[in-house]
């Protein structure tokens, strides 16, 4: 029996086309116009460039240190993720396995902090960060991301660990494995699916974050990609051919990663929400 659909199929195709145009045209226009001169753009934004103007990109690449910002963003993201996974998996696993009031209280402590808006802690966080000399350092900024992101990781690990049978770790400990060894050898590999989800959600968060770098990074050398784009925009406010080039350059890494890993990313988003 054929499945009857909610909407007739010709209408579906039409709707799909319209929606595709809506989602794609800003990206397409940004890319196409980043390859035009300013004058050509003002003649027509939708025309295909007569000759590809790589000069815009050359100019941007010589004007700003985009590779350094790429490196900064990369380091901040990697260190934050490693820290969040390390702290989150250890704590989430043990909190899930330990009965009793102390465990429940600690879990509640992490859980209850998830609704706090960043703005409520922003100003005292600046004070804490400057006290610890974290402001502006690419290698120390991840410490803050770990502090802000570990609660959600613990929440997801805590739920996932319940689906792992206890017998595995009990028999490992019978065989003489210490608790830490049991965790690293037996448990952590089993947590891989939820680890993937957390990694994906946190990469998207940290890589694309604007607010924390905006208030924490003052040194041009430590700029992240998004921060670099924002400074560039305030300097070149209407020279769109340059601005669009930098937008394309800063977005290129995420889009490439997305096209390669999109299956996992989409899966990770859905899992993160449904298990959460």
């Amino acid at each position: 029996m054929r499945k009857r659909s909610l909407i007739p199929s010709s209408l579906i195709v039409l709707l799909l086309i319209i929606v595709t145009i809506f989602f794609m045209f800003p990206i397409v226009l940004a890319v196409v116009n980043s390859l035009k001169s300013q004058g050509e753009m003002f003649k027509s934004v939708i025309a295909w460039p007569k000759a590809l103007q790589w000069e815009n990109y050359k100019y941007v690449l010589t004007e700003v240190h985009i590779l350094r910002s790429l490196y900064n963003t990369f380091i901040i993201t990697i260190l934050s993720i490693v820290g969040i996974i390390f702290c989150g998996a250890l704590a989430g696993y043990k909190l899930s396995r330990t009965p009793g009031k102390v465990s429940a209280f600690i879990f509640f402590l992490f859980l209850s902090s998830m609704l706090i808006p960043f703005y409520s802690i922003m100003f005292s966080l600046i004070q804490v960060a400057s006290g610890l000399h974290i402001q502006g350092s690419v290698y120390r900024l991840p410490l803050i991301y770990i502090g802000l992101g570990v609660n959600f990781a613990i929440f997801l690990y805590h739920g996932f660990v319940k689906s792992i049978p206890r017998e595995l770790e009990e028999s490992a400990q019978m065989d003489g494995c210490g608790q830490l060894k049991t965790f690293t050898r037996i448990i952590f590999p089993l947590l891989l699916p939820i680890t993937m989800t957390i990694v994906i959600l946190d990469i998207l968060w940290v890589w694309n974050d604007f607010m924390l770098p905006l208030i924490m990074i003052t040194d041009y050398k430590s700029y992240t990609l998004v921060l670099l784009a924002s400074t560039f925009f305030s300097e070149y406010s209407t020279e769109w051919s340059y601005i669009l080039s930098i937008l394309v350059l800063t977005s290129l890494p995420v889009i490439l990663v997305y096209l390669v890993f999109q299956k996992y990313i989409v899966q990770g988003i859905a899992d993160g929400a449904i298990k959460g």
């Binding site: 402590l109 902090s113 802690i121 804490v128 570990v150 613990i154 965790f183």
Partner: peptide, 16 residues
């Protein structure tokens, strides 16, 4: 097991 997470949480979320 919870100590590493607690340290970061306390310094960068609870105290602020």
């Amino acid at each position: 097991f919870a100590a590493p997470a607690l340290v970061f949480y306390v310094i960068f979320l609870l105290i602020p």
